[in-house]
């Protein structure tokens, strides 16, 4: 099955990102295609490389990065949501005159059209959040 995943909540505060990660990993291991993981609302906070959890805790951001490296996953942060919450890549830093970036590797910032496109292309859109 061809799947799209949407993550609506930030890491640690809420289980949504954990559940989405475990679902995505399991789906890939079962041989399903995950067309895209789209991060929206506070979900964009899953895409900052500056996250530093305690050493004895899971690293939610790195976990997504490693999964993306292994399976060539498309991890997309909504641009409008990311701008509001201070998630910045090179392009956004230049466009908005910011003095730093914080986006994690394998993530990219793009528009809401990427979510709509994923919903159209896929057999299922699976939403994680409250």
């Amino acid at each position: 099955m061809k799947l799209a995943v949407q993550v609506n909540e930030g890491p640690y505060q809420h289980q949504a990102s954990d559940s989405a990660y475990h679902f995505t990993k399991a789906a890939l291991e079962k041989g399903h295609e995950v067309f895209r993981v789209f991060f929206y609302h506070d979900g964009v906070l899953n895409g900052t490389r500056l996250t530093t959890p305690p050493q004895d805790d899971r690293n939610i951001v790195n976990r997504w990065v490693e999964l993306a490296e292994k399976h060539d996953l498309d991890l997309v942060l909504c641009v409008a949501a990311a701008q509001r919450r201070g998630i910045v890549d090179d392009g956004e830093a230049e466009r908005n005159g910011k003095d730093a970036t914080n986006i994690a590797p394998k993530f990219r910032i793009s528009g809401l059209g990427q979510l709509i496109e994923a919903a159209i292309q896929c057999d299922r859109l699976v939403v994680f959040g409250d």
């Binding site: 609506n8 929206y40 409008a80 949501a81 809401l112 059209g113 979510l115 709509i116």
Partner: peptide, 19 residues
């Protein structure tokens, strides 16, 4: 919360896709 407003943003952007 911001959910209602950001939901509306998806609807507005999604209009371009003619679903």
């Amino acid at each position: 919360t911001i959910y209602a407003w950001e939901s509306l943003e998806v609807v507005l952007i999604g209009a371009a896709f003619d679903q």
